[in-house]
Write a protein that binds this DNA or RNA. Structure first.
Lengths: 296, 296
DNA sequence: GATCAATCATGCAAATACGTATATCAACAC
DNA sequence: GTGTTGATATACGTATTTGCATGATTGATC
C-alpha cells in the first residue's frame, strides 16, 4: 500500500460538529473559544479532505447538506468517545489543583456552600471551585459539573451517590406578612393565605394534598423558577414559602408557621461520576462536602 | 460557568493512540507521516492538558502508565468513530477521481486485473487505483481496501457482495516436468508426484481426499505463501499445482494433467462496504470489475 | 568492552495556522 | 429606501507548529 491513507484532521471534525450543532460558524467559534475565520477555514479544509460538501452556503446562513447529515451521527459518536476520554483522564488526574465544578440549587449555593468553600480553600489553596447554581439532574451526565448536591437519588449506574443527611422543611413567612394577614393556627387557616411557588408547584401540591392542605394553584400568586428569588419574596412579605430549616434558621425576619406540623423530610444526596471518584482532588472536595453536610 | 471547559487537542489523541499501539514515538511518526519530535511534543502536550502521565520514559523506550492504559480503550473508541466518519464520507463522495484500493490474490492481481485496469484508466483517467495483493478477508473491514475479489462469501452484514462467476480449477504442470517424471494417466498415478503448495494446504487435502487423491503432506515438497511464487515454481518444473483455468490458459509451457478429471469449482465474489457503494467512483470500479469478471 | 542500531530530547529555520480588521451580503425594522 | 444586525469571506501580520539536524542515551551484538 503506497497510499497516504486518505485521512483528515480530527480537530476539523470538532469544528464541523459544533458548527452543525450551533447553526453557524460564528456561534461555533464562540462555543470553542476560537474565531469565525478559523472555523470557516477548518470546515472548508475538512470538506476538501473528505471530498464532500458539508454545508450549503445559502444567504447569510449555512445549511447542512444531506452528506453532512449522514456524517453527523458518526461525528457525534466521536465526540462522545472524546468526552469519555476527558472523563476518565480527570479521574486519573491526581493533582490537587485545577478546577472542580459543584452544582447545587441556588438556595443551597448561597446558604450552605460558602463555609464549606472557605474550608476547601484552606485545605487546597490551588483548587478552583466553580459553583453551578442549577437543579438539573442531567448536569452530571453532561459533565457540566463534577459533583452534584441533589434531593433525589440518581439512578444512573455510572454515578456514585452518598446519602449525607435527611433534611427537614417547614413553611415560613415574614413577620411583616404574618402581622398583616394573621398567624394561621390550623391547617385549615391556610386556605386564604398566599403562597410562593418555585420549582414544580403541581408536584408539590400532589404531595401536600393527602396531608390535608386546603390549597391549590390559586393560592400561588407569586413565584419564580429560582428558589432564591422565591425566598427573597417570602422575606419581603409576599406570602408563605416552604424552606429547609437550616436555611430558614439563618434568615432574620422569618417565622415558622404551624410549628407543630410534621416537617417535610427530604434527602440530600451527594453525587459524582464513578470515574471521577478516583481523582484525588474530586475526592477531597467530595469528602469535604460530605463532612460538612452530614454534621450540620 | 466561567471555565473554558478543560479540553484537549483531538489530534494529540491520535498521536497518543498510535504511539501506544506502535510502541514508540518514531514508529508512530512513520505511521502517521510525521516526525518523531512532532509526535513527542504532541504527546507531551496531551499529558499537560489532561494532567496525567501517559508514558513512563524508561531507557530508550516508552512504557504506557496505568493511567494511559485506562484511557486507551476510550481513545480506541474515538478512532473507530473516526474510521466510520471516513467510511461514510467516502461513500458520500461523488467525485470520479481520487483513490480506490482493490484487493485480490496476487495471482489474480497479475493475471486478471491488468486489462480491467486499462479499461478503467480509459473510463476515468483521474482515478488512482491501488492494487493490494493479499488474500486476507479482513482487508475490507480494516479499510485497507475498498473493493475485494475473494473466493468465499463474506458474511459481515456491513458488506455487499456480488457473485460474479463460478471459476474452474485444474491441476497443471510444466511440459518439462511431465517429460521428466511422466504424464499421469489416472488419479492413482499422482501418488509419486511432487505438488506445490500455497495457501492452506491441509484444507486443500481435506477437500481432495474424498475425491480419491492418494496424496498427503509429503507430496508437497515445495511451496510458498504466495500463489504467484508457487505458480512460478510450477512453470519452472518443480511439480504439479492447482490453478484457475483462465490463468493457466494464458501461461505458456504449462499443461493440464488428467484432463477428464472434474474441475474444482470455486466462486468469485466481488465485495465492498455497504457505505461505499453509494460513492460514484467506487460504483464505477465495482461495476467495471463485475463486467469483466463475468464475461471472461 | 566497543560498536552499532534505534530510541528520545533539543535548537533553530521554515511552513502552517490563527486572529484582527475589514469588506460583503442578506434579512428585518422603521 | 435606509439603517441595523448578524452572518460569511478575504487580506495580512503574527504566533504557533512542524521538520531537519544534531546530540545524548540505551540495549544488543560481536
Amino acid at each position: 500500500m503506497i497510499d497516504p491513507k486518505t485521512t483528515f484532521d480530527w480537530n476539523h471534525i470538532r469544528a464541523f460538529l459544533t458548527t452543525a450543532e450551533e447553526g453557524s460558524l460564528s456561534a461555533a467559534a464562540r462555543q470553542l473559544g476560537q474565531t469565525q475565520p478559523t472555523l470557516g477555514r477548518q470546515v472548508a479544509a475538512l470538506e476538501e479532505d473528505l471530498g464532500v460538501m458539508l454545508f450549503e452556503r445559502v444567504g447569510r446562513t449555512l445549511e447542512l447538506t444531506v452528506a453532512g447529515g449522514e456524517l453527523l451521527e458518526h461525528v457525534r459518536a466521536m465526540r462522545e468517545a472524546a468526552d469519555r476520554v476527558a472523563l476518565v483522564a480527570s479521574g486519573q488526574n491526581q493533582d490537587v489543583e485545577g478546577r472542580v465544578a459543584i452544582t447545587a440549587s441556588d438556595v443551597y449555593s448561597v446558604h450552605l456552600l460558602p463555609p464549606i468553600l472557605r474550608d476547601l480553600r484552606a485545605k487546597a489553596p490551588r483548587l478552583i471551585i466553580d459553583v453551578v447554581a442549577s437543579d438539573d439532574v442531567q448536569d452530571l451526565m453532561r459533565r457540566e459539573a463534577d459533583i452534584a448536591i441533589r434531593h433525589v437519588r440518581p439512578e444512573q449506574p455510572d454515578l456514585i451517590a452518598r446519602l449525607v443527611r435527611e433534611a427537614k422543611g417547614y413553611f415560613y413567612a415574614s413577620t411583616e406578612y404574618l402581622d398583616l394577614r394573621g398567624h394561621p393556627k390550623t391547617v385549615a387557616d391556610l386556605k386564604n393565605h398566599d403562597f410562593i411557588g418555585s420549582g414544580d408547584v403541581p408536584r408539590m401540591l400532589e404531595y401536600l394534598k393527602p396531608m390535608g392542605f386546603p390549597i391549590d394553584l390559586d393560592n400561588f400568586r407569586t413565584g419564580s423558577d429560582s428558589g432564591l428569588v422565591a425566598w427573597e419574596m417570602c422575606k419581603q412579605g409576599f406570602g408563605i414559602a416552604p424552606m429547609a430549616d437550616d436555611v430558614a434558621d439563618t434568615t432574620p425576619g422569618i417565622e415558622r408557621i404551624l410549628p407543630d406540623l410534621a416537617p417535610i423530610v427530604f434527602p440530600i444526596w451527594l453525587t459524582t461520576h464513578r470515574e471521577l471518584h478516583t481523582s484525588r482532588r474530586i475526592r477531597l472536595v467530595f469528602d469535604t462536602l460530605a463532612d460538612h453536610l452530614t454534621e450540620t
